[in-house]
Structure formats: structure tokens, C-alpha cells
Amino acid sequence: MPRRTARTALYAATAASTALLAAACGPQTEQVESAPSSPSGSAESDSASEAPASFTAGEYEATGSYQTPGGTQSVDVEVTLEADGTITDVEVDGNAEGGNSEQFQKKFESGIDAQVEGRKITELSIDKVSGSSLTSGGFNDAIAQIIDDAQA
């Protein structure tokens, strides 16, 4: 049941992924968004036709890449995986340097009218990008690669 286990791992990876994004942006961020309780439940929704499989515990590395008009960008992801698919440690490298921990929360109820000053997305503490999904696509690719590598 490779699929089933893969999804279990993906599920476990969800918690890691938000931690990843937070980790990518420096120690002061508190952006862990979802905290799944246990990876075991996610297998229930899978069909019985899939065959079982397990993970080889250990450290895995993968690089996710994505295209931008400026060229190919990449993000390196390293995870420590238990045999049950739980990710116990995670590291991100590459664009993760220079984390911007000075995030302000401001309401702009009354309105802003100004010239845009862009900031590097990789230096922001964020969960998602709206307008394009290039970065998260690269990230997803990296995770998918890890899952593939980890299947015994």
C-alpha cells in the first residue's frame, strides 16, 4: 500500500512543512499553523486496493526547484524520518538565510495609498503566497521527492 503510507507521511509532513516555513524565517517566528495530532488516521480514507509499505527511518534530503522569470530557484530540505512516517527533525537551506523576524501586524482599515516597495519573499515569515504558487510548488516537489526516497 505505497500510496497509503505515502499519504500518511505527507500528512506528517504537513506539520513539518509549517515548521519548515517558520524555521526558514528565523527563530523568532511563531508560524506553526496546523498541528496534526497523529499521522495514523489519514490512511483510513484510502481504498483497500492499495498494498502496504513502510518507510526506512533515517535522514533524507531533497531539493525542490521552481521557475521564475529570474531563473531557476531552489530550496533544500532535510528531514529525519521515523519508520512510521513521522518527521522528527527538519532543516531548510538555500533561500532561508537572512530571515526577517521583524514582522509587524498592522491594520490598514482606513486605507493605504503608496508606491510599492517589494521585499524578498524568502526573507518573510509567511505560510502562503497569493498571486502565484511558484514557491510552494517547489516546496511541494521537495517533499514529494523525500517521500519517494523514503519508501523502502
Binding site: Q31, R119, I121, T122, G131
Partner: peptide, 14 residues
């Protein structure tokens, strides 16, 4: 959820 607004002329920027 913290959502970056992608710069319309440079997807590396928000």
C-alpha cells in the same frame, strides 16, 4: 494564516 501578496512584476518579491 500569513499570506504574501506577490509582486506583479517580480515573483521573488512581495
Amino acid at each position: 494564516l500569513r499570506v504574501a501578496l506577490e509582486h506583479p512584476r517580480d515573483p521573488e518579491l512581495a
